[in-house]
Design a protein around this nucleic acid. Structure first.
Length: 677
RNA sequence: UGCGGGGUGGAGCAGUGGUAGCUCGUUGGGCUCAUAACCCAAAGGUCGGAGGUUCGAAUCCUCCCUCCGCUACCA
């Protein structure tokens, strides 16, 4: 493998329209932080850059909704997120933002450079335009009736009721959400990055030269490349963003995914005047830490931009993670299904490392993973407390009891002692190998093995027993136990920086280099250590129950808030109403329609006849349970074949806010066929 | 119905051709320095099923079963 002189670590710029949650941390920032801390301890020349991504339509939408400016929105979340990172010890060298002047300059220059080289293609296209508000409309700004389900509040890109993805021209009765007026199509000019042109180069660069990338990343790229790349617009009609720096570009800004990765460059510029060393020297190794939603931008688009520009280096690896679920469900900002970083610290003050540990141990490295509070508790109690904290405590308590805190000398060592000491070095190498291959779960497990080793050593040598017969031997044992403890402060430092700082305090030592790991005389004879406190404490069931209850509460609140009362429909005449034959009937038989999830085949007595109706209620009613039940039906609906079965009529049901269907029945028994009017 | 991802000891997972492994749990034992923590040992799996390729398959191929997500079926 190529030897690099320095490292440039980038972490996905969080979007400044909301606070950070555990998914962000687990997927991107904990791994990136571990990696960076490790490199720094090795004495490598490394910088880690990040910042807020502050442009794009969602931010303008949110601003409009709250009646404030986009700048106010991004200011708010920039501060919150910057603080969250610093609170959790995510040690970027700089946390910048894309609304900075330096970023505007950098992004403009970058665009202009490609523009002047003729890398872009220009194309006119038709976009929806709001004549009243005088602006073009992003898909999200257009609402109308969904052609599939009839929902009158479908967005131009997606109907949230039936989930179908749409384009604005699909909508019936489209209207602008800004002015309410009917949008018209209007021609607009945009600049495109011809990704199709770069395809051969990308194929070679990724598929041949970077086979070592993680399988999820490589596979994703391959599938994109195999599908064929299309030119992508790099500009938008919007007033929030970096203006397109050419003539005839009034009201146009750089599209957010074009300007965001350039944010890495501007952040580096802001950090150091030597920024070019990190971006333009082939001896720099650039690593992008991202989530899987970002793979295409960091593996295809941004590299294409950099390559087209020509003077920049390309990422050497893009260790993207998958997604973290929470208690079995997808994390969702809008549904408040998340553990927010700032709230976590209110509930668990000082327990940054516990979350870092737990998120790293179950990070979604190869596939989506689930975070549960129960597992979080188990990781803390069974691993951090029982294995790590306990070993440290045993060692320091014994040292204080026997030697008043003075490190005893190591006398004659036996074979077992030697093998334990040697094991420390092996563990260090294992941790290194794992971190350098971006396998952080494995690295952490291996690092914890050092604490396991310590516990085993004490159990095997039993100093509390031997002390009565052979005090000289105990000095050797405790010296070795202390050396293991000292090594822990090095090997676990990238993972648990807060706790290791504490531990160093008790050991009365300073920060060490990574190369010190494996050494067996870190604490010299006679060195004084302090009295320890508990490195971690147990998390009781109540604390966990409270968190789960909190989630359940937000789930409930959500449901309540999501009740959409459908406005009343247009009036109909009584004549029209009377055309519908609604009457009572009794269910005689019910069975599931095979190979469907929702359909029941019902035989019902309508008073006038016995007929078959197919109804989509199987998810809410067991066939057996509804036989004999009296219900209401539309008797004169034209028959329709559903799944090959002729359905004559329709069962009336009330649909609850969560989509649950409930049969509508007469409150007292009436004869079948009674008219409902 | 289509697409995608899974099915490995009680639970959660690792393991892409060569004697089936980890964490937790269970049971028994040891220890009592330590936050009832630690250490050792044992039990427990025909790696969803059937065929095939191979000297050899959890691992490759074919078919099937099953679970999950999206999709379809709800008039």
């Amino acid at each position: 493998m190529k030897k690099f002189k320095r490292y440039l670590v980038t972490s996905a710029l969080p979007y400044a329209n909301g606070p950070l949650h555990i998914g962000h941390l687990a997927g991107v920032y904990v791994p990136s932080d571990i990696y960076t801390r490790y490199l720094r301890m090795k004495g490598e020349d490394v910088i880690s850059v990040c910042g807020s991504d502050e442009h794009g339509v969602p931010i303008t939408l949110k601003a409009r909704k709250e009646g404030v400016s986009p700048q106010e929105i991004v200011d708010r979340y920039h501060e919150i997120n910057k603080k969250a990172f610093s609170d959790f010890g995510i040690a970027f060298d700089i946390y910048s933002r894309t609304s900075n002047k330096i970023h505007y300059e950098t992004a403009s220059e970058f665009f202009l450079n490609l523009y002047e080289k003729g890398e872009f293609t220009e194309k006119n296209s038709e976009q929806y335009y709001d004549e009243e508000a005088g602006c073009f409309l992003a898909d999200r700004y257009i609402m109308g009736t969904c052609p599939h389900c009839g929902n009158e509040n479908a967005y131009g890109d997606q109907c949230e009721k039936c989930g179908t993805s749409l384009s604005p021209s699909d909508l019936i009765n489209p209207h602008s959400t800004i002015s309410g007026s009917k949008p018209v199509l209007r021609e607009t000019l945009h600049w495109y990055l011809p990704l199709d042109k770069y395809e051969p180069w990308l194929r070679k660069w990724i598929l041949e030269e970077h086979r070592e990338w993680k399988t999820n990343v490589y596979g994703q790229c391959k599938s994109w490349l195999d599908q064929g790349l299309q030119p992508r617009a790099v500009s938008r009609d919007l007033d929030w963003g970096v203006p397109v720096p050419v003539k005839n570009a009034k009201g146009k800004v750089l599209y957010v995914w074009f300007d965001a990765p350039i944010g890495y460059i501007s952040a580096t510029k802001e950090l150091t005047p030597n920024w070019e060393k990190y971006w333009k020297d082939k001896d720099t190794r650039m690593i992008h830490f991202i989530g899987k939603d970002n793979i295409v931008f960091h593996c295809i688009i941004f590299p294409s931009m950099l390559n087209a520009e020509g003077t920049y280096i390309l990422p050497d690896n893009v260790p993207a993670n998958e997604f973290l679920n929470l208690e079995g469900e997808k994390i969702s900002t809008s549904r408040n299904w998340a553990v927010w970083l700032h709230e976590y610290l209110e509930d668990f003050p000082g327990k940054q490392d516990v979350l870092r540990y737990s998120l790293c141990a179950s990070a979604p490295e190869t596939k989506d993973n689930d975070f549960t509070w129960k597992e979080f508790q188990a990781r803390n109690n069974n691993e951090l407390v029982a294995i790590l904290g306990n070993f440290v405590n045993r060692t320091l308590v014994l040292t204080n009891n026997y030697y008043e805190g003075k490190v005893p000398s190591r006398g004659v060592t036996d074979k077992y002692d030697e093998s334990v000491l040697k094991e420390i070095g092996k563990i260090r190498v294992n941790v290194e190998t794992s971190i350098e291959s971006f396998r952080f779960r494995e690295a952490l497990k291996e690092a914890m093995n050092l604490a396991r080793l310590g516990n085993k050593y004490l159990a095997d040598t039993e100093p509390w027993k031997v002390v009565k017969t052979d005090p000289e031997r105990v000095k050797t044992i405790m010296n070795i136990a202390l050396q293991i403890t000292a090594n822990l402060t090095i090997i676990l430092e990238p993972f648990l920086p807060f706790s290791m700082e504490k531990l160093r305090g008790w050991l009365n030592t300073g920060k060490k280099q990574w190369s010190d790991a494996g050494q067996t005389d870190i604490l010299l004879t006679g060195h004084m250590v302090n009295k320890p406190e508990l490195l971690f404490d147990k998390i009781e069931d109540e604390a966990i129950d409270r968190q789960v209850a909190k989630l359940m509460a937000s789930k409930k609140a959500n449901e309540a808030a999501s009740v959409i009362t459908v406005p009343s429909k247009d009036p109909v005449s009584f004549d029209d109403f009377s055309k519908i034959d609604i009457r009572t009937a009794t269910i005689l038989e019910a069975e599931k329609v095979p190979r469907t999830t929702k359909l029941l085949k019902l035989k019902i007595d309508t008073g006038i006849d016995v007929r078959t109706i197919v109804s989509g209620i199987a998810e809410y009613y067991e066939p057996q349970a509804i036989i004999g039940k009296q219900i209401s039906i539309v008797a004169n609906l034209e028959p329709r074949k559903i799944k090959g079965i002729e359905s004559k009529g329709m069962i009336l049901m009330a649909e609850d806010k969560d989509g649950k269907l409930v049969l509508v029945s007469p409150s007292d028994k009436v004869s079948n066929g009674s008219m409902i009017k």
